[in-house]
Structure formats: C-alpha cells, structure tokens
C-alpha cells in the first residue's frame, strides 16, 4: 500500500469525524510516513509496519464516539458508540449488542403502550360523537383516566430512558477499559 492509498483509506474510514479532529489524527500518520522516508524506508514498508488502517481507525474512533455520546445527549450518538465498541470483537458483539437491543426494544414498546393509551382516550371521545357507545360525560371521564395513565407512564418512562442512557455509557466505558487492557 502506498502512502497516498493508506492516507485515503484512513480518511475514508474516519469520514464521520469532525474535520478538525480528523485532520489532527491524520497528521500523525502523515508525519510518520515523512519520517519513515527520511530514514530510508519505503512507503510500502511504512504502511506495513503501521498496520491495518481499519484497526487503527477502530482504535481512534472508540474513545471518540463514547465521548461524543456523553457530551451531546442524543440517541444516534449512543448507538454509534455502541457499534464502535462492538466493532472491537466478537466478545463485545454478544455482551453489548444483546442487552442493548433487548433493553431498547422493551423501552420502545413501553413508550408505544403509553401512546396507545392516550389514543384510546381520544377514541372514546370520538366514539361518543359518532357511534355513541358511551354518553359524552362517560367518554370524557374515561378519556381523562386514559390520559392520566398515559402521562404517568410517560413520566416513569422518561426517567427509565435517561437511566438506560447513562447506564449504557457507563457500561461502554467499562467495556472499553477491559478491551484496551487497562485496569484503571
């Protein structure tokens, strides 16, 4: 692999990183090639000793993604952090993706339940106008009960979801340390 193709590959693998950060990282590898050339090493030799660009990109992205998820609280970032950690090995595939997907699915379905109960409340009111299974006062009180339930459920879920977020991050950090072989 030549210097140019190595740098291009690394650049491509890091395309989702902010430009500033990417340039800073790439500079290290650019310098490495320059200095290797000064010491009389060929571009191919330098590329070979640097190692697989995918491995390097994985190591660079690992810390970055977890940190990004931490600083910007959004769930796309969290999923990215999860996948960056997973890409480190099969062990992680089982121990991270499994619990993450399962818990996320449970949370999502509970949110769907909360929404469904709210819709049911609305439906009783619509019903009292068109089909008249319930009288209007009955429908109104049923709807209020439904909405109260749905709001309570949503409050509880909001708490659970943010706990889930925090726990996932904590677990990722722990896992990252284990994978890096860092006992701290």
């Amino acid at each position: 692999m030549t210097k140019q193709s190595y740098m291009n590959e690394l650049d491509r693998l890091l395309r989702n990183v902010s430009e500033e950060q990417r340039k800073e990282w790439l500079y290290d590898y650019y310098l490495h090639f320059e200095q290797a050339a000064q010491n009389g090493r060929s571009e191919e030799e330098a590329a070979l000793e640097l190692g697989d660009p995918r491995q390097i990109a994985g190591e660079l992205l690992l810390g970055y993604r977890v940190e990004q998820a931490e600083s910007s609280k959004n769930y796309r970032g969290l999923s990215r952090a999860v996948f960056a950690t997973v890409s480190l090995g099969l062990f992680n595939l089982i121990f991270i993706i499994g619990p993450y997907v399962a818990l996320a699915a449970v949370l999502l379905s509970l949110w769907a339940v909360a929404a469904a109960i709210a819709v049911a409340g609305l439906a009783t009111i619509v019903d009292s106008f068109w089909v008249e299974t319930f009288t209007k006062p009955q429908a109104l009180s049923l709807a209020l009960i439904c909405w109260a339930l749905s709001i309570l459920l949503a409050i509880g879920l909001k708490f659970l979801t943010s706990k889930f977020y925090a726990m996932t991050l904590k677990y990722l950090k722990f896992n990252t340390r284990v994978v890096r072989g860092n006992s701290k």
Partner: peptide
C-alpha cells in the same frame, strides 16, 4: 515517530496503534 520506533524495536506490534494511545 521516535516513540513508535523505540517501542517497535523492543516488541512486535502495529506501530500505528501508538498514535491512538498518545491521543
């Protein structure tokens, strides 16, 4: 580069891993 070379002289590793660690 100096660090990467000093370490790779002592034991075998992908030299490229030194930079993520330094970062």
């Amino acid at each position: 580069y100096e660090l990467a070379v000093m370490i790779s002289e002592k034991f075998e590793l992908a030299v490229g891993s030194v930079y993520p660690l330094l970062n």
